Computed example of a mutant assay.
Amino acid sequence: MQNGTRYTMANLQAYMLRCLADVSPGFGIDPERLCLGLGFEVADLADPDCRLSFRQASEMIRRAVTLAPGRGIGLEVANQETISSIGLVGYALMTSPTFGDAVRLGMSLQNHAGAMLEFDCVEEGATMSVVAANRFHEPDIEVFLVEEAFGSFMTIARTLAGGEFRPSSIDFSYACPAYVAQYERTFDCPLRFGQKDNVFSCDLAWAKRPIPTYDPLSHRQVLSFFDELRAQEDEDSELIESVERIVRRDLRRAPTLEAVAAQLCMSERTLRRRLARSGVSFQALLDGVRQRRATALLSNPRLSIEEVAYEVGFSDSHNFRRAFKRWTGHGPRGVRFAV
């Protein structure tokens, strides 16, 4: 179970999850079953305004992987995706001058493409590589995430650079799967499993390949859109940090939404609206701060459960136990033993 509001903040684009729902019947899976009880339905994934949390997305994927064990479901999702599957980010890439420009731009816009891994582009010698790392510790869905990411890289690269594009090599941090033939068909290049990192590499010469759909005016327009979006996100991130800072000052007597809004010189309604725009509620922020503080205090054996409860704003230790289990999936005593 992950800590922090960023794991539960609903700011993840649903592009890839929509494709997962589309391919799941081919694996004998009812897509509605993948969403059951997660706070959204399959139809919601088609809404361009739909945003999900990493927790919701990872649970949907986990269910799919569990229901289709030993199948390359991540590769199959990638095979169904096109460059338009990542929305306006795809358009920004298509209007870039060269393949290298598109790759570097993609790195800067990865959060807008619904990426569930973190990507970094490295140019070394005659090789250009994209390294994929986990945002959160989710080992049971890592294979799916890497399959989908690297598989979609193939589709995007061939759309931008031409059908003859071929990686020079791909490294995977996990063991070779039983369905490795599916990997070989998808990537058509040397594959190495059990490596230190997940790395998709190609000849640096591809970076100079002009993109046929390059359009300078359209490119400037879409970049301007993302610049405005980033400015808004920076403002929202600053607001969230300010709210958390105010709440942390005295968790024993946690302030109300109205009190926090007053300290930020805005109305309660404005604060609620701006938090909603960021995909988070005041209660979720408060719970996140309480959870992190409680987990830290539980590592101190001199403090009783009752004292920890009081320190994070609960006058009743029973209510604290219930809340802590809701936050983490475990009771405070179990977490204390684990710590």
Rank of each mutant, 00 (worst) to 15 (best):
I73M: 02
E164I: 08
E148F: 07
A132H: 00
R209H: 10
E241L: 14
A132K: 03
L239P: 04
I170S: 01
R249I: 11
S129E: 08
Q182I: 12
A259P: 00
S218H: 13
G72L: 08
F136D: 00
I83K: 01
L88C: 09
V289F: 01
G28R: 07
P332C: 06
R248G: 03
A261R: 00
A284F: 05
E138I: 10
M94G: 10
A323L: 04
A78H: 05
D120A: 13
L36N: 12
G194S: 07
P48I: 03
D171V: 02
S278N: 09
V312A: 00
F54S: 11
S317Y: 13
C265G: 11
A149G: 07
P167G: 04
N111T: 13
V222L: 06
S129W: 00
A284L: 12
L34K: 01
D47N: 14
R249T: 12
N134Q: 13
A115E: 11
R220A: 13
G37Q: 04
P139Y: 05
F136R: 04
Q110F: 08
G74W: 03
C202Y: 13
G28F: 08
L223T: 09
G279S: 04
T295N: 10
V89H: 05
R277F: 10
A254F: 01
D215M: 06
Q232M: 13
L117A: 05
D316C: 10
G329D: 06
R135E: 06
R33D: 14
K325I: 08
R71Q: 15
L105R: 09
M116S: 09
E306K: 15
R293F: 04
G87Q: 04
R6V: 11
G72K: 07
L257T: 08
L303W: 11
E238C: 14
E235H: 12
L204E: 12
V131H: 09
M154V: 09
S299P: 04
Y214G: 06
P332L: 02
L239F: 05
E184G: 06
E81M: 15
S304P: 07
Y174K: 13
G329W: 03
A323G: 05
V260M: 02
V247P: 00
T213F: 10
A207E: 07
V42Q: 00
C50N: 00
M116K: 11
L12Y: 01
S168H: 03
T66S: 14
S96M: 06
P216D: 07
D120N: 15
R252M: 12
P177Y: 07
D188A: 12
E233K: 14
I156E: 04
H318C: 14
V243Y: 00
A43C: 09
L17H: 03
A149S: 15
G313H: 02
T295H: 13
S129K: 10
A207Q: 08
R336D: 07
M107S: 11
A126P: 09
M94Q: 15
V122G: 05
P167D: 04
P25K: 03
A78R: 00
R290L: 01
F27H: 05
D227V: 13
A178K: 12
Q56P: 03
V130R: 08
H137M: 12
D44C: 07
R71M: 11
M154I: 11
F172P: 02
